[in-house]
Simulated assay, not measured.
Amino acid sequence: MTQPFRPRDPLAPAQAYQTWSVKSRPDKAVKTVCERVGCAAWRLGWESVIDESTKLGKEQAAFIRLESRRTFREQRTAVGLTVFRFESGQRCFADHQTMPEKYVVQRGDYRAKVGELRVHTRAADWVEHVQEHMGRLLDEQAKG
């Protein structure tokens, strides 16, 4: 594996730096919510067209009406099908999976890892931490 380009050697020891990284295990998928995977049905809403003249269609329609716990409007088509129109912003009927990620802030740099400083479970918290740290660095730089 080739080493990344570095314009100059670090000026301070490894302990003076922090490394920010996102890690995931490609062999471990977990169930997740529509919003996290960018599900189009969650974002835009969706329609389910059900043929209630069949046993399966009757069971599907009964589930939607009585057990789905989702907001919908119901219409009948000219050919006798039932159309359930679901509003956006609610969980669809698919099982979504994603690779869980760890958002890590570690003491040290590429020369030596000195230990984990913090592990965030949410990307937004990790980004906020990066921004706060960069703000402190810019303040120190401005002071001289």
Rank of each mutant, 00 (worst) to 15 (best):
M1S: 13
T2H: 15
F5M: 01
P7I: 00
P7C: 03
R8E: 13
R8F: 09
D9E: 11
D9Y: 05
L11F: 00
A12H: 06
A14G: 02
Q18D: 14
T19H: 11
T19N: 12
K23Y: 11
S24V: 11
S24W: 13
R25V: 15
R25G: 12
D27C: 08
A29D: 09
A29S: 15
V30P: 05
V30E: 14
C34S: 03
E35Y: 09
V37H: 01
A40G: 12
A41S: 04
R43C: 10
L44T: 10
W46I: 08
E47G: 08
S48P: 06
S48K: 11
V49H: 11
V49F: 09
I50C: 04
D51Y: 05
D51A: 04
D51K: 03
E52Q: 08
S53N: 05
K55S: 05
G57K: 02
G57M: 03
G57V: 00
G57C: 06
K58E: 08
K58M: 06
E59S: 14
Q60R: 11
A61F: 08
A61H: 09
L66G: 04
R69S: 10
T71S: 08
F72M: 05
R73Y: 09
R73A: 11
E74Y: 03
Q75W: 12
R76G: 04
R76D: 06
T77G: 01
A78K: 07
V79D: 07
V79Q: 07
G80W: 01
G80M: 03
L81E: 01
L81M: 07
R85E: 08
F86K: 00
F86I: 00
E87L: 10
S88R: 15
S88A: 13
G89T: 03
Q90S: 04
Q90M: 05
R91V: 12
R91W: 10
C92V: 02
A94G: 05
A94N: 10
T98P: 10
M99S: 15
M99V: 14
E101K: 15
V104D: 02
V104K: 00
V105R: 05
V105T: 05
Q106F: 09
R107L: 14
Y110C: 12
Y110D: 10
Y110G: 07
A112K: 08
A112F: 09
K113S: 13
V114Y: 10
V114M: 11
G115F: 07
L117V: 09
V119Y: 03
H120A: 00
T121L: 13
R122G: 12
A124E: 12
A124M: 13
W126A: 02
V127M: 07
E128K: 12
V130A: 06
M134C: 14
M134H: 15
R136T: 00
R136A: 02
L137W: 02
L138N: 00
D139W: 06
E140M: 04
Q141W: 09
K143I: 14
G144E: 05
